[in-house]
Design a binder for these strands. Structure first.
Length: 658
RNA sequence: GCUGGCGUAGCUCAGUUGGUAGAGCAAUUGAUUUGUAAUCAAUAGGUCGUGGGUUCAAGUCCCUCCGCCAGCUCCA
């Protein structure tokens, strides 16, 4: 038998002492022989193979890459098989259930079911029952076998079982003479491409984590099925650790601590997606906004201030009226005015009017406009969430007009500005970049020709590549007028949202007749870049709360210092100290005047995540010093006032993150 | 918009099979005058998200609407 090259999770294995394997040995046994504890899948340059495959089944034997649970590839297979086990368990408990699909996801897996024919209102109570059936299936260690059928046979099998969704899938995916693979584990069969683990016993422990609704094929026009989410690990400890970590992450949920730390609240009578920023939240937003407006000014932006609503006419020119009307709040006047107005969902058509106010020449370009812009979008009622998805929000909005030659530099400038903001807030490692493209198969969602799109996407790709940006690509995520670079972050529930976006627009200048005269006197359309520097303030606030678990960096802290007099006689002295510190540039200070012991006041300040606590007792008065306590570093001891001022002011001015 | 869960004092929660609301923290007042994560006591504060229905009687059962949460769809 020929020698084989073996890799584990992509790393080459030292082959010096390897035995030669027989053709009939299965991959699982080979993996075990190599000392891999939790083998999941074998990949060659061409294919993926189930571990039940025999070595002889493989054509490309020279290059076997074993993936175990420690690799993303391995986890994917592990979780996919776990989904099948879940489906098998549900099928055993509810024989009439209809199966949807059950893929692995980023962490864990899900399976969609239709319980319609089961005469049961499935609820979270049932998950325990299903979990215990899952344990049975794992201990039965059922072998997982792959089998191929032609389309007709596959349809017959699934028709017998009234698996309407599987029938739908087979019809959709398989051509008339096509073959389809089934994975069988005892009484359970599923149409599936695989690959899968060798047997159900290869799975350690499964926990079911959620039960929700989900549309069949992800289409809101289709029936809603019941989705059960789960996660699995080779051992119980890892599973428990994962679940604990999940719970810990939820403790940072901005929607929870943002409310309890009094950054924001919501009021039933005001309505969904319309939060109240309380003084603490409003202060952080104000600080961010001042900072951004100054920064943009330094970067050559011209400030604009445009109306919050307009006649429908404006949106008809921009294309919003036909592409976006469902998401706009319309204002109808009832005094006989036939005009319909609408609150603005975007700033672009308004800010363009600034450009249009004069004839522009190439000498004017690039032009960079910025505005702290409040927008209104009629999101569907189920969409709103905390501070991240709102019906009214305020964004650090900007539009740039430039010549084709300037596009690269201007785009890069926007990217650099965004990156600078992210670094400053300590978020640069928490974001990913997404190149959002149009969806060819959904042309009606976009304006412009196919060539326009292909060209502008190519331009953007070139720029992104020249910046050595590590990005993913997403079809169908573009704006209706052009491709986007989205800077994404993940919240405590592992859900992704866009923080910052930079978009190239090759359409709207034409619609608005925005032109410039080039050096030869010719009228041309400029490129327009739509961008934010820090995204919208509410969402950024939410991200900051989650990132810092409510403990804002000193420069953004709504309360920077709290003075804690040891007894009531020291309140006046503390008030004077407060004024004194304010004069040195530490603006946000409170004195705790409660008639309580010092421990109580420290506890309160700690829970409110106040950066610095100054304990004032007789000792401090006598020595003219202050006792400084930091929220994370604890008691810093006695310090002169000037030393503390230096420390604090330095942190504020340098926007230190700690 | 859809699926499921939830909605009792400012906050976190109790409230048995329907019999006209409880606790802790916070607040206020008093005592204490306190040295690095909760001093003690008293007082005040809800008509149980909204509107309707069933009942002799509803926080507790039914319906409507509003809001909150998770997920889906959509999206900055």
């Amino acid at each position: 038998m020929a020698k084989i090259n073996i890799k584990i999770n992509g790393k080459p294995l030292d082959l010096s002492n390897l035995p030669e394997f027989e053709e009939h040995t299965n991959l699982h046994d080979i993996a075990r022989h190599l000392g891999i504890t939790n083998p999941c899948v074998v990949k060659t340059t061409k294919n993926s193979y189930d571990l039940s495959h025999k070595l002889g089944d493989i054509d490309e034997k020279d290059d076997l890459n074993f993936f175990d649970f420690d690799s993303p590839e391995g986890k994917h297979v592990y979780w996919h098989t776990s989904a099948h086990v879940l489906a098998q368990a549900v099928k055993r408990l509810f024989p009439e259930v209809k199966l949807g699909i059950g893929p692995a996801i980023e962490s864990g897996f899900y399976y969609d079911f239709d319980f319609n024919d089961c005469n049961v209102q499935i609820s979270k109570e049932h998950l325990k029952e299903i979990e215990s059936e899952i344990s049975n299936i794992i201990s039965e260690n059922i072998e997982i076998k792959k089998e191929f059928f032609d389309k007709k046979r596959a349809l017959d099998i699934m028709s017998d079982r009234k698996e309407i969704y599987k029938i739908d899938l087979i019809n959709e995916k398989i051509g008339e003479n096509g073959q389809i693979s089934f994975y069988n584990q005892k009484e359970y069969n599923d149409v599936c491409l695989g690959p899968h683990l060798k047997s159900t016993g290869c799975i350690g422990n499964i926990a079911l984590t959620n039960l929700t609704g989900a549309y069949w094929k992800g289409d809101a026009k289709n029936k809603m099925l019941t989705r059960i989410y789960g996660i699995s690990f080779p051992n119980q400890t890892d599973l428990e650790n994962y679940l604990t970590k999940l719970e810990e992450a939820k403790k940072r949920d901005h929607n929870k601590i943002g409310r309890s730390l009094k950054y924001f609240t919501t009021v039933d009578s005001i309505g969904q997606g319309l939060p109240i920023l309380l003084p603490k939240g409003a202060k952080v937003v104000q600080l961010l906004q001042r900072f951004i407006e100054d920064l943009e000014e330094k970067n050559g932006y011209l400030l604009t201030k445009t109306p919050y609503f307009s006649k429908s006419e404006l949106y008809k020119i921009s294309g919003h009226w036909s592409h976006y009307q469902d998401s706009m709040f319309l204002l109808k006047t009832e005094d006989g005015d036939s005009e319909t107005y609408a609150l603005r969902p975007m700033t672009c058509p308004f800010q363009f009017q600034v450009y249009l106010n004069e004839d522009r020449s190439y000498r004017d370009l690039p032009m960079r406009f910025n505005e702290t812009s409040t927008l209104f979008r009629k999101e569907q009622s189920g969409e709103m969430h905390g501070l991240t998805r709102l019906r009214q929000f305020t964004i650090s909005e900007g539009h740039l007009a430039c010549t084709p030659e300037q596009l690269d530099e201007e785009f890069t400038g926007c990217l650099n500005l965004a990156n600078y903001c992210l670094e400053l807030l300590g978020l640069e490692r928490d974001v990913t970049f997404r190149f959002s493209k149009w969806d060819k198969n959904n042309k009606e969602k976009y304006i412009g020709s196919e060539k326009d799109w292909e060209d502008s996407q190519e331009i953007m790709r070139k720029i992104l590549d020249s910046q050595n940006l590590n990005y993913t690509e997403a079809d169908g995520e573009a704006a209706f007028y052009g491709p986007k670079l989205d800077i994404q972050f993940t919240n405590v529930y592992n859900k992704e949202d866009t923080l910052i976006t930079i978009q190239i627009d090759f359409q709207l200048a034409r619609r608005f007749e925005m032109k410039y005269t080039d050096a030869s006197g010719e009228k041309k359309y400029p490129f327009v870049i739509h961008r934010t520097s820090l995204g919208c303030y509410e969402r950024t606030l939410a991200l900051l709360i989650e990132k810092y678990a409510g403990a804002m960096p000193m420069w953004l802290a709504p309360e920077q210092v709290r003075i804690l007099p040891v007894n009531e006689n020291l309140i006046n002295y503390s008030q004077e100290l407060k004024t004194n510190l304010e004069n040195f540039g530490i603006k946000r200070i409170k004195v705790d005047t409660h008639n309580e012991k010092i421990g109580y006041k420290i506890r309160a300040a700690q829970e409110e995540k106040i950066p610095y606590m100054l304990v004032i007792g007789n000792k401090e008065v006598e020595t003219s010093k202050i006792s400084v306590r930091h929220r994370t570093n604890g008691d810093l001891g006695l310090m002169s006032l000037s030393d503390f001022v230096k420390l604090a002011v330095d942190e504020i001015e340098n926007k230190t993150i700690n």
